[in-house]
Computed example of a mutant assay.
Amino acid sequence: MDTNLLKVFITVAKTKSISSAAKELEFTQSNVTLRIKQLEKNLGYSLFHRTNRGVVLSNEGEKLYPYAIDILKKIEEATVQMRNINYQDVLKIGSTQTFTTSNLMPIIEQLNEDFEEMKLEFSVDSTLNLTEQLLDYKLDIAFINGNPHNKDLEILNVFDEKMVLVEPLKKQTGNTVFVFKKTCANCIFLENYIKENREESYKTVALENYELILGCVKAGYGVSLLSPKIIEKFGYTDYVKQTEIENYLDTHLVCRKDYLPVIHKYLRDISL
């Protein structure tokens, strides 16, 4: 449907006058009349009733009017978006809980300083769920644990993620593995590590609060796998034993290959 014809139709409907519409559109009256007739011919209906005082919408015109308004609005929105395609309006960011707590804030502050007009939206979840959100185009980028090895995803950046096994400093260690979520990559990694390095069997308990996890470890109830930055943030550096874990999964900043953020070059160079 020709949007130019719809614009003429809307103007005539608003002004209730061919002459007034022609003046507003800077057309001749005959041009406006011709365009209305063309639209009526295309649709197969009369859109106006002619009266001595001007024109009024017919039943069919009344039905078309809200659709015409909506169509033009969508066209205008699309035009604005395409004109600003080289500008990142909104950046939808996904991040694991660990990376969010230990490292995300400096990156947010850097983005806010360098792109003051850009809005940021966040999703904090497990690596598995964040990957699914990326593949469903619900996120622009995501900070996840390890290389996803997915043909549809591209790695923009890699951040070293130092992680330590956290145990009681003085008390005997209980046979419990404390994790933030049982579905997170940290949980899977720690469970495998314990199986390979400890003879005792451990049960896994999810506590979605890092301070609570650290408190339980300090009290001797079990072990956990955390970033030293998180331990320091909650003031437990001098109260728990920390053993660095080798070959832990680094944090990868990823996006869809067919949906690169406008600022992807900037994101490739960003550092902590």
Results as ranks from 00 to 15, higher is better:
Asn145Leu: 06
Ser227Pro: 14
Ile155Leu: 00
Phe178Gly: 05
Tyr202His: 09
Lys171Ile: 09
Ser126Thr: 13
Tyr193Asn: 06
Ile194Leu: 13
Ile155Gln: 02
Leu135Gly: 00
Ile263Gln: 05
Leu134Glu: 05
Ile188Glu: 08
Val205His: 03
Lys170Ser: 14
Leu190Ala: 06
Tyr248Arg: 12
Lys203Met: 12
Ser227Thr: 09
Pro261Phe: 04
Ile230Trp: 10
Ala185Arg: 12
Ser227His: 08
Glu132Thr: 11
Gln133Leu: 12
Val217Pro: 14
Asn150Lys: 11
Leu130Gln: 05
Ile144Leu: 02
Thr131Lys: 09
Ile231Asp: 02
Glu232Asn: 15
Asn145Pro: 04
Val217Tyr: 01
Val254Arg: 00
Glu200Arg: 06
Lys138Ser: 03
Thr204Lys: 10
Met163Ser: 15
Pro228Glu: 05
Asp160His: 11
Lys151Pro: 04
Glu161Ser: 12
Arg198Met: 03
Phe143Ser: 10
Lys195Cys: 07
Gly222Cys: 04
Val166Arg: 14
Pro261His: 09
Cys216Tyr: 15
Gly174Glu: 07
Glu154His: 00
Tyr239Pro: 14
Asn186Tyr: 12
Ile263Leu: 02
Phe234Gln: 11
Lys257Pro: 03
Lys171Gly: 07
Tyr202Asn: 03
Lys233Pro: 01
Lys170Tyr: 13
Glu200Trp: 06
Leu169Ile: 07
Glu132Ala: 14
Gly222Asn: 01
Ile141Gln: 01
Asn186Gln: 08
Leu130Ala: 06
Lys138Asn: 06
Thr173Lys: 12
Ala206Leu: 08
Lys229Ser: 15
Gly235Thr: 04
Tyr202Val: 04
Val179Ile: 03
Phe234Lys: 15
Asp160Pro: 12
Val166Gly: 15
Glu211Leu: 11
Arg198Asp: 00
Glu132His: 14
Thr237Val: 11
His149Gln: 07
Val177Ser: 11
Tyr221Asn: 14
Gln133Tyr: 05
Leu212Asp: 15
Asn157Glu: 05
Gln172Asn: 09
Glu132Trp: 09
Lys181Gly: 13
Ala219Pro: 11
Leu260Met: 14
